[in-house]
Design a protein around this nucleic acid. Structure first.
Lengths: 221, 221
DNA sequence: CGACTTGCGTGACAATGTCACTGAAGGGGC
DNA sequence: GCCCCTTCAGTGACATTGTCACGCAAGTCG
């Protein structure tokens, strides 16, 4: 049937009981994406709900004039409700999902989704919780963009992108797209960080030499 | 039982069949708010789902330094999923809902909500659709704040706030809170609009003298 | 008529975004 | 190796937006 066991992937989350995971396993369709692939976008709205089995998806929104902002990331074990949102709302939207790693996902078709939502309390709660989390995520984005300073936001983002490592592999343009600003702005701030010995730069790579310092700036939220 | 008939309020939306509305009627608790009251906020998270029977609620988010931005509005016949989102996510958030008019709402307790969601397909779809709509709303806000120009956003907002009338009753500060910016910025732009004979101002009131002109600016989105 | 609150105007400045460039760094073909 | 080409980063000038510190005008209430 499948070459992976959906039931064990959710072990950590404990969000869905085993029998529900089995039902998912039975009805879902497997999708694979390579790093960099577009998982969904304005032109390709999937007819169902995504569950991420393995990998990570970056969901971002872009403007007409080419700027871009990252809304949130979907990790293994989570679902991407934005696709369903757009399915339901049938509105145009310019958000897209891109695979940040190789991705294995399952697509639960709308009919199966409806059936599970009707019959399985745990599944329904899981979906509601997923919606809630994304709403909260977006509230955070709005707050940052509307009220936050970019040096603060950048310091914060560098630390999270670093994930404990001391190097971040990203171009200035990448970071600009993370925060929804322009490359030049990022360059300015990074050069400032460099002057203050918080980071060191080379082409495409940023070394976080003083994480404590960055954290201090990030705390000024 | 109740002094109004919930079943007829949703007549227009046709989202929920009559029997489901009857069930809502039976289990829900009525809440009344006066214009200006806080319906929910960081300090008061209701234990259930709001349905707006009558009136309008403005949902906004505020920053530490006192600035504020309107996220969306909840109209009669709609539900406010943000409260449930926060109930589920149990995260701190700084969004609040304020009654823009006198408001009659019903609060569906969590237990009743769960039961209805399990048993009534139409109800479940209604809630999913409500979540979806809010997600889309927030995407729009992010887009505006991150990529939009304030003159465009202000022109747009003036027209929607006017709702066909030719006067908007709002202070510069009110408008600043709508768009998540500062009063001075609004003053500047409004004075510019005035010089171009798009509007006329008096204390607390803005007359939209050239709606076509405003619309033209708003289209530059 | 004063005192007081609230709404608005303003100038100087800081932060951020835009534009039009420049050159440096790396990759691939020869 | 070297040349060509693309991508990445730096820069200065300027536009837009946000912040600060005021002052003044319009209503409110005694």
């Amino acid at each position: 049937m499948t070459d992976f066991d959906w039931t064990e992937r959710f072990e950590g989350t404990a969000a869905l009981p085993v029998d529900v995971r089995r039902r998912l396993n039975a009805t879902a369709r497997i999708l694979k994406f390579s790093r960099g692939d577009q998982v969904f976008g304005p032109m390709s709205v999937p007819d169902g709900l995504f569950f991420l089995y393995e990998g990570r998806i970056r969901v971002s929104q872009s403007s007409e004039n080419g700027r871009e902002i990252v809304l949130y990331r979907v990790d293994a074990g989570e679902s991407c409700v934005l696709t369903t949102a757009c399915m339901l709302a049938e509105e145009a939207y310019n958000a897209e999902g891109v695979a940040e790693t190789d991705v294995t996902a399952i697509l639960l078709p709308k009919t199966a989704f409806d059936r599970l939502a009707a019959e399985e309390d745990a599944f329904r709660n899981f979906v509601f919780a997923a919606y809630s989390r994304r709403l909260i995520d977006l509230l955070r984005v709005v707050d940052d963009v509307a009220f936050g300073r970019i040096d603060v936001r950048l310091a914060e983002r560098l630390l999270t992108l670093g994930q404990g490592r001391k190097e971040v592999r990203a171009t200035h343009q990448d970071l600009a797209s993370e925060l929804g600003t322009a490359r030049e702005v990022i360059s300015r701030v990074l050069n400032d960080f460099q002057k203050r010995d918080l980071i060191a730069q080379s082409r495409g790579v940023i070394s976080l030499s003083d994480k404590m310092g960055l954290a201090t700036i990030a705390q000024s939220a």
